[in-house]
Amino acid sequence: MSVVIYSVQRVLALLLLLCAPLLYAGNGIVLLLSSDALPYREVEQGIRATLFEQQSAIPIASLTLDSLLSEEAVLPDDIDVLVTIGTRATRYALQENISDTIYSSFITASGLLREITTEKGFPDALKGAVVLDQPAERVILLAKLISPQATRLGTVVNASAPNRLSEFKRVAQRRGLKLIAASLFEESNPIADLKKIFAKSDVFLVIPDKANFNSKIAKWILFLSYRHRVPVIGYSKKYTDAGALISIFSSPLEVGRDTGERLLSYLSLKSQKAPMVRLQYPRYFSLSINDKVVESLGLTIGNEAQLKERMRQQLSASVRDESGLVLEVVEQ
């Protein structure tokens, strides 16, 4: 029976979408993709799927930045929201003022903060964003779950680039953990610094940061983790595959889904009052475990689903908003 109901719902949703231009009073949403690459398309797919599931009547269109720049495509006039997907699209939209209602997605918090911290001040056009970074609360809880006896966490950041060290330190302290970090400068000896951190750490966190995207440093972190038998928490499935014990990340589809939901929420509030600008961490996330590393470290951590469930329970009990905020701008 439920299958029948579900099918009917799908058909109705489809009809609604087809008739959307007739039912919806506004001009809809346009997605501006940084490029045609697969991750951006997956974000688009996530947004469209959410709108479809929510039976939204809002028309939605998409174009890539390259097609816009080459004038193969034109941005429609008077759209309700321009959703920029990725750094390039966000930068272009904000710099060129191509819309007065921009929602940014699939961008790192540091990338977005760079775009909005300009001499001209906070861009009025930016109405909200879903960033890619994981909240510190989530990462540190994961560290606690995979290594309950852990008291010291280690990490490394690039001193010459914006980093999230203070956020992580604060959250670690709240959880009764000490975060030991090395700030790498240009003239630093990275291996010497990393060795010191690994020698003092029970779990190593790879916080997305320019230091950690230096491919050599990524390699050395993994090498040293084998040597010191310290589990590493990475930031992508590929990091897990390369040798991290576990990674926590939001997939493009998850970011798209979250963006879709927040867009709908934004549009429903828009008519009432100009809302706060909320730059938020992604609500949905995935875990990926490297079973070989689990085995070699002799750990018992359960599978991804079990860990995620335990995280959900503990996060909802301890955090007001699981997704957290990067920053919030309000009316004066």
Binding site: S34, P39, G86, T87, F106, I107, T108, A109, S110, G111, L113, R114, L132, A136, N158, A159, S160, A161, P162, N163, R164, L165, S166, E167, P208, D209, K210, F213, Y235, S236, K238, F249, P252, V326, L327
Partner: peptide, 20 residues
């Protein structure tokens, strides 16, 4: 929530391309 580098954005920040 970000510590700003002493010299501001001396380096390009991390992008989604780095993450994936």
């Amino acid at each position: 929530l970000f510590c700003w580098a002493p010299q501001g954005f001396a380096m390009e920040p991390v992008t989604e391309i780095d993450l994936y």
